[in-house]
Design a protein around this nucleic acid. Sequence first.
DNA 1: TTGTATGCGTTATCAT
DNA 2: ATGATAACGCATACAA
Lengths: 337, 337
Amino acid sequence: MNPNPPNIKDVAKAAECSIATVSCVLNERGRISEATKVRVRETCQKMGYFPSSAGRNLRSRRTETIGILFYPSCAHIFRDIFYAEMMGGLEEELTQANHNLLLAGYDISTQQQTLPKFIREGSVDGVILMGGCPDEFNQRLRKTPLPFLLLDTDAPGAAVDSITSDGFRAMVDITAYLHNKGHRRMLMIRHCTDNYNEITRCQGFEAETRRLELDSCAETIQVQTTEDAVREIILRLNRPDPITAVCTVNDDMAANILYQLQAAGIRVPEQVSMTGFDNTGFSQNTCPPLTTIHIDRTLMGTEGAKMILSRIQNPGAPVRKQVIPHTLVERESVKTI
Amino acid sequence: MNPNPPNIKDVAKAAECSIATVSCVLNERGRISEATKVRVRETCQKMGYFPSSAGRNLRSRRTETIGILFYPSCAHIFRDIFYAEMMGGLEEELTQANHNLLLAGYDISTQQQTLPKFIREGSVDGVILMGGCPDEFNQRLRKTPLPFLLLDTDAPGAAVDSITSDGFRAMVDITAYLHNKGHRRMLMIRHCTDNYNEITRCQGFEAETRRLELDSCAETIQVQTTEDAVREIILRLNRPDPITAVCTVNDDMAANILYQLQAAGIRVPEQVSMTGFDNTGFSQNTCPPLTTIHIDRTLMGTEGAKMILSRIQNPGAPVRKQVIPHTLVERESVKTI
DNA sequence: TTGTATGCGTTATCAT
DNA sequence: ATGATAACGCATACAA
């Protein structure tokens, strides 16, 4: 008879009690007799009643929703295959905690206004930022009472919760590993864009080559395209003192370079060794399989969810910076020399 | 003084008018003098006021939010690289239309309950399903007054809005193309899971080989792993009448097979030709670059957004099944024989 | 153990 | 041209 979904009033009428009773039963306020509890629950079941989020949100001033903000854009991020697992972890943990997951890209949302709609209008209880966080945006977000968290990125020096991997230490590990394998002349390649992970990883490379006193023959370069990277590598292979190893900021870059290098007739790892980063699925399927750094990204996701939830529960707690451990995965793209 | 964000009452007081006036100004109800309009707008600006979504949702019975439901899971989908562009298109169009985007995976969300939280609690105005839609779930969703749309998948015969590419026709095109190039003995490979796109694509292959009377030497097989695929291919290359072409259901599969085939010493396209599907970014970077089918997935996303929005606006309109056009992208993985 | 009544912030209807 | 006020659906303080 009623086209609209049933509301708490309908349930109360059907269960012959007050709406307060229904609410108490559903929210486990425990002061209701077992008999009515059962009766109310059965009525809800029968009528297919679920409390409307609109009413609850308004009344409770909570939305049970977490916003995920991608920088710079959703599409840009989805393209980076390793975010899959992080999103999986996030979704699992948030769903378990009975929270929704709102998605937005930074560029589009903020083109017109200073903050994304869902933040302006209070549609979320907290925000997780992924892919980076431009300073200027960080400032704006700070003016908001909204808890937020940087996931797989960080704003060094800023008092913001964050979860990252230790890219610095990981690249130190890789560099030391290469050194152990006899490599001395190395090249590290990154993209031209500024990115927390790329920067810290390169810093790790530079710190360790310096410590090993290889800095005169180690070098970091930034490239626009795979072609550029390959050209730069070949240049350094044809010198009198050719490089013997190339490090990259992630598996994707490594794989692209790898194939184009091979297409140019250069054998890996015979002529030059290569390392990746992230241990994305396909890094074990390249020829040769990539030696890389593994990070449990599902864990990053679940930990991220937990952290933002706990921050919401306790806004005054001290800032937390959590580091997810990494491991070096040894495959066949590095030769002992 | 007030720790909470300002509400419409605060604005009204500051602008020395009633809350009704504020509401009318903000919602362009046009019956307010230009002078007060300006005054109210300035006050909003000054106070940093934005209407709370909670209040609006409750009153208007609309959430301005679209739910995206992934089957089977978020992680599973994010892994499929080509969803990036679709999500980009979706996000762009929805944001432009002032809508939020709520995300959930099918498996996790529905583990505990029959429908995802955001559907049960009326947190969205419509749902877009991606990756597939199990019959049983379709049924449940139908019991809901909620508009929904199948994006890049379809439930054949069901009266549900959908946007798909014409995988059937596209594989017909590929098969005819191979036939033109002199190929007669072909193998089509798909995964073991049931999936709308894989099924229709294979049907296209089968229909066209039948039409060309190649069905005695054309075959479709399902494989669990790349290794399986490669084994099956090599088996058929070593027969007296070896196959000359292998078709796949997507670029990803094609690339994986390609590399393992080459690792096994088989040259492509000299010994066997290969085709992909989807024209994902990396398909032009394989060696050799893949001949494949291009589908404008950003367009799929934007069209999907438009369709669900128009469905929400007009629930009674006839069901629409929209097909996004495709084109054959000729590269170097097919040899003329 | 249960019911009554109020307010969350908004939009919209009706007066003025 | 503007203001007072009643919903929207829910949670909860307080009364019974």
